[in-house]
Design a binder for these strands. Sequence first.
DNA 1: GATGAATGAGGGTTCATTCAT
DNA 2: AATGAATGAACCCTCATTCAT
Lengths: 212, 212, 212, 212
Amino acid sequence: MRSKKQPSGERTFVDVARRAQLVQCAIDAIAEIGFEHASLAEIARRAGITKGAIFYHFANRDELIEAVFTEVITAGSNYILPRVQAATTPTEQLHAYIRAFVDGATADPRVITVLLAIGQHLTDDKGLPKLLKDATLQEMAIAPMEDILRRGQESGEFGEFSVRSMALTLRGTLESLPSHVIAYPDLELDAHREQLVEIFDRACGVRKPKRR
Amino acid sequence: MRSKKQPSGERTFVDVARRAQLVQCAIDAIAEIGFEHASLAEIARRAGITKGAIFYHFANRDELIEAVFTEVITAGSNYILPRVQAATTPTEQLHAYIRAFVDGATADPRVITVLLAIGQHLTDDKGLPKLLKDATLQEMAIAPMEDILRRGQESGEFGEFSVRSMALTLRGTLESLPSHVIAYPDLELDAHREQLVEIFDRACGVRKPKRR
Amino acid sequence: MRSKKQPSGERTFVDVARRAQLVQCAIDAIAEIGFEHASLAEIARRAGITKGAIFYHFANRDELIEAVFTEVITAGSNYILPRVQAATTPTEQLHAYIRAFVDGATADPRVITVLLAIGQHLTDDKGLPKLLKDATLQEMAIAPMEDILRRGQESGEFGEFSVRSMALTLRGTLESLPSHVIAYPDLELDAHREQLVEIFDRACGVRKPKRR
Amino acid sequence: MRSKKQPSGERTFVDVARRAQLVQCAIDAIAEIGFEHASLAEIARRAGITKGAIFYHFANRDELIEAVFTEVITAGSNYILPRVQAATTPTEQLHAYIRAFVDGATADPRVITVLLAIGQHLTDDKGLPKLLKDATLQEMAIAPMEDILRRGQESGEFGEFSVRSMALTLRGTLESLPSHVIAYPDLELDAHREQLVEIFDRACGVRKPKRR
DNA sequence: GATGAATGAGGGTTCATTCAT
DNA sequence: AATGAATGAACCCTCATTCAT
């Protein structure tokens, strides 16, 4: 029972467009002024409509945030996965993953910024983050990475390590990127990206040094 | 001109004690119910005083949070640095750093939980995280780590890599720990800690495998 | 100038049907979820049309509620009056009135529930219940009762009392029925109904005890 | 856990006074403009404070309404019960009850108006009135009346009837008084009151006609 | 005749902050 | 040093109403 559409239940063109627009405005707002300051009033202002109109398209704030979450997760996957799948060996896929992530975060830092913000702020009644175990997140953001690592070990390209620990290391590293970019405005992203590739090459114990 | 102390500027004993108490109560509150639910009313309740009294010791909420931040950074350093300094070689110091961080986060998760929460929530007028560039943070949390890495390279124990990139990798990994603990409640922290030691050993290209 | 009909002023068949349908949906909604929760959106939902369409048939919410009120008063009268008129003497008519009211309220509690809800909720600009003095209400709901009482006194069947006071007593008793049914779910309505007949027999000083 | 007092938990003089004032303002508002229009903003306006200040004295709107309910129930009881207890026989107590109720409703119609308004409007999630079965209401408003009727039957002063049915009749009659006063502005209350006494005398089958 | 979209006023609620005492 | 009381802005949300299509 999403928004409050009534008789038809199908989405109108205008509705779809407005929802998309509101999601984008919410992403902008969260990325620019932070999750807590991204009030419905602010989002509506950016969209050029009134606060009340939001409730025509989303049942409540949570539903809008959920749509934002889905959008950034999807956008991130759409950027990263094709680049990973274009690679053939696990080693190359690992490189592709890291490079795609860094490039994506450089091209549109909003996506990862918002993803992190939602992850940290969306808490349940007791203040515990309720998105961290989200199935969507696991499926789309984490499983691919663990797949690469596992297949790399099976193929003998990678050495021995706990897939889980390595995945958490890689994930923590990549997700901290936006805040590091802010903290170190002089960070050379291209060089840093290649450093990360080498660092995780060694960390994974890649056997045959990459050759390109 | 911090709180609204009289011209003299000196702190009385009671004031110092109250400030410390309020900081601790704030840490508890943030760790338990989250940054956004840790209202001044809630913090005052935990301290057994009234909301209004807080403003006698802190000029405003931000100043209290800043004190919390300082406290938590200091506590973290006080836990980690002695353990690092007890080690002699850069390799052992690296191990000590990782182990101390993980152990500290396990022993008192409040510290790192609060550190992360503040880092993400405390934004300036424009919504930008205003603590990331904080000098204190750099001095106390990052410089020691970069020192170890640099000295390891100078001594020949570590291979070649950008100190900055490696430090960011390590930092991102360690700071993501709390959210990973929540996301994977079954994470074996002792094993994970040793995995991290090995991962960063390889990442740093430690020459002589540790033997102790 | 009721709804926004064109100058001609005549109602089309569809309009009449829709109005009737909306009135019924409003009755259902008010009876089921209460006057305050019976929003136009809810009523439209039950009618399978959109909120906006309501304004094609009714100028505003108040006009719809007024139509509901009229409908419910008419339905009540249509249930009670034939039964009263089937009786011949004032005493029997009094009995018929009471029994018809209780039976009607039992058969379709919506009618009296809605009547009461509207009576209590529908207030004018100054908050005064604006239906209590409604001419329709007086004509249809009270006049018949007062007629019976007056004719009973004239025929000598009833003793001496103020017709107005007795009518108010009877009316207050009968209209409180729905809330009493809620307050006392175990109330035996058949027995209660006959008790009311006897009570008002005595209250009216009925001379010759009923024998049928 | 009432309002949000913290350390002491005891009520201050000012707090008690404000609560009382707010309750009175709420009573005025409900009586004058109806339950639904008696918003917190309106009540605050009448009290000369801001909306937010209400939450310092009451945890939420429901708690204020509950206080209003308690107040009117208590005020009603305090007016009626002493007058009833001053009478000795059930018959005289019945008369005293009716006269006290009518006089009380005449002296301060707000009390009963508000009582009814709350009874009708305070609904649970599904729109059902949730106050009708309230224990307080039963104890303070209904039990005394049933007591009189029961003791009158036991003493032989009253005839035979269902105490429950008679109590409901009397209650329905008396509680409808305010709306009747509005509907019939020319109603002579003194005469009506004595009519009610006689009507219920006869309805209860009082044996020895009152002599005074 | 009806829809889908939007408005705008108002609702209850939270909270940092102020201030007289 | 601290309290109790209040403010006022902002928050999310509901709803009758309007209107172009």
